[in-house]
Design a protein around this nucleic acid. Sequence first.
DNA 1: TACGATATGGAGGCATCCTCCGTTTGGCAA
DNA 2: TTGCCAAACGGAGGATGCCTCCATATCGTA
Lengths: 193, 193
Amino acid sequence: MARAVMRPFLTDETSLRADAQRNRERILAAAEEVFLERGAGASLEDVAKRAGVGIGTLYRRFATREELLAATYSARFLALAESSRARDADIGPLDGLRAYLEELVRHTSVYRGLAATLGTVMQVGTPGCVATSEEGARLLRRAQEAGVIRPDISFNDLICVAVAISLAIEQDSSPQTRIAHLVGVFIDGMAVH
Amino acid sequence: MARAVMRPFLTDETSLRADAQRNRERILAAAEEVFLERGAGASLEDVAKRAGVGIGTLYRRFATREELLAATYSARFLALAESSRARDADIGPLDGLRAYLEELVRHTSVYRGLAATLGTVMQVGTPGCVATSEEGARLLRRAQEAGVIRPDISFNDLICVAVAISLAIEQDSSPQTRIAHLVGVFIDGMAVH
DNA sequence: TACGATATGGAGGCATCCTCCGTTTGGCAA
DNA sequence: TTGCCAAACGGAGGATGCCTCCATATCGTA
């Protein structure tokens, strides 16, 4: 139940001292590995250890677990927004939203335990989070303007849907087909009939 | 990420020694209070302390947090199943399902943090969990036989929906109206068009 | 080269989990 | 009633993880 922490997110170009920048990257690489192996709740001291860095260094750079998760995800989320934008011309508004949701769920299911914190993670404000949020909002607006999605659906509803499906995927182990099935159900629910 | 633990659930009539039975009830009462105050992640040692019982006693009776949560919820869930059955005659299959889901979400939102573990909790097998599961499955079957809910919807989908909505409720603080809104969306998605 | 701002690391305090085992107690059989 | 023992008790203690703090080290600039 971590509170959402809004603070300026430091990207690569920010004036970090060379050693700090190097350590930041080591921490991210280690976090990626450790989260993959043991889920989003893994020990941060393990991450620091694998990065060859003191725990204090990790905490100075990433004040909360959510910040670290979000940073680890930033590249992935950037790619998601990118690929969604890329297929925009070739796909209708409803299917665009469907594809976006399916991809979001797939990304969210990479680390066991990430789903439950997705809402918080999305608020941390990394470039990837921002890009993914904006893309989702854009797709939703587009579909609503095209008259295929109900006007009373909010972006929060989308995130909530993604969280739900990811959680479901985590619990039973019936992966890919179930993602499409559940996304289909929700898209139908949001559609104008 | 606790694994679901299937073990025979000890109800009141089971041959527990008198002192054990007394302590079990004290623990449940204390857990109810503590979880209400501090959410489903509260310290179990606090629960034991408030119950006036050693921590070992708590663990012997409830091997996991999920078991304790489920037991605490058992009465609530029993009531839920009961009231759902009671209104069965007065309500159509679709609205019956809707009412059930709304009530399930409301129950699940009582303790902050319960939603994320609802799936696990539902598998623990307390009388309440069983009753609620069976009632949900029955409503779903009824609605599908009436031809108003798609045949490819499973009971797991329902739980997933309840989890999603509860999580959404926990995050923003826009309670009652949002429950109805989201349940409506999902019901529409599951409906036959 | 020297100096101050920046960064480092890990010890340590605290919270929680969960197990283990010596002690106590309830309930039954004699 | 008494005595016995299976059942239950409690809490110390080992293990893990979180996060802070500060003496020390390092970078980059003047």
